[in-house]
């Protein structure tokens, strides 16, 4: 009797969340699928999907979107891991200061942060101002993938750092010390002890950063140009300028499926890595 009662109470607790998801997530999603299947002369079909996946330009935009998100995730991991390590290994006011450093940007709107980077990267900005002071030629850094990349890495860094830091903090330092005592070099201790045990945090961080980056819109629009087209900007254009809802819905679905598939692959790789380390 007990397990049944337990199941019933669990279901009761889950019910609000499940109903909320059905009404506010699955429902609109199904509606979106229906809109994406609408065809010009009436009726339903796959015309919008064929347009999105059959035209070389839209395929290029789709690939650009994936590559941008992957690069942002890679560089966020590259810069975020050492920062997370520093947070996990520091104590007292230093730890507080590092956490403050990484959390503070989250309190500032992404638009403001993006405009901040415009000031830094602009022709009269900090970098070019310094170059000019040394009589060096200035560089046009705005309006391209570099500017978008650096801004997105900055915007996404806290999500990666916080995910990894929490995993690193859970690692018993005695394990690392034991390895060092037994003659392992620090690099080996990292390779065989710290990295495998922090994989959960890395996977969470990369999943978060990848899914947020692939959907990022404001930063790409402000820092990019016509060459740096990605799917979220394309969806915005189709909705607000072309007023082509079915095509916008189809592009949205392509984006969603892409995120789901890549996240699934990331999780599978993570699982395999963990199994390999075990």
């Amino acid at each position: 009797m007990m397990p049944n009662r337990f199941r019933l109470s669990t279901l009761a607790f889950l019910a609000p969340a499940v109903i909320g998801l059905l009404v506010f997530f699955i429902g609109p999603l199904l509606l979106n699928v229906e809109v994406s299947l609408r065809e010009q002369g009436g009726g339903h079909g796959l015309a919008q999907y064929l347009r999105a996946l059959g035209d070389a330009y839209y395929v290029k935009v789709w690939l650009q979107t994936i590559v941008l998100a992957a690069c942002v995730t890679f560089f966020t991991l590259l810069f975020g891991y050492p920062f997370a390590f520093a947070i996990a290994r520091s104590r007292g006011p230093v730890k507080g200061f590092l956490i403050f450093l990484i959390v503070t940007p989250l309190l500032i709107n992404v638009v403001v942060r993006t405009f901040g980077w415009m000031v830094v990267l602009g022709r009269s900005g900090l970098i070019n101002g310094t170059l000019r002071a040394f009589d060096l030629p200035t560089i046009n850094m705005l309006g391209g993938w570099f500017a978008i990349g650096i801004t997105l890495v900055h915007v996404m860094l806290p999500f990666m750092v916080l995910s990894i830091a929490s995993a690193l903090e859970g690692i018993d330092q005695a394990l690392e010390q034991a390895a060092l005592t037994l003659g392992a070099k620090p690099a080996a201790a990292f390779r065989y002890i710290i990295w495998p045990l922090s994989l959960d945090g890395v996977i969470t961080g990369t999943l978060l950063v990848f899914s947020l980056s692939i959907g990022s819109f404001v930063t790409v629009m402000l820092m990019g140009n016509n060459r740096t087209m990605v799917l979220p900007v394309m969806v915005y254009q189709q909705l607000n300028l072309s007023s082509d809802w079915p095509f916008a819905a189809a592009l949205g679905m392509v984006l969603l499926v892409t995120v789901l598939v890549i996240s699934g692959i990331q999780l599978a790789i993570g699982r395999r890595l963990r199994r390999g380390q075990a």
Binding site: G122, R123, S124, G125, G143, M221, L222, N225, N226
Partner: peptide
């Protein structure tokens, strides 16, 4: 063209910062 602008705030900022 430095940028074909889409966002008006972005555009005036480019001019104000002498971009």
């Amino acid at each position: 063209i430095a940028k074909y602008w889409v966002n008006p705030v972005d555009a005036i900022n480019m001019f104000a910062t002498k971009e």
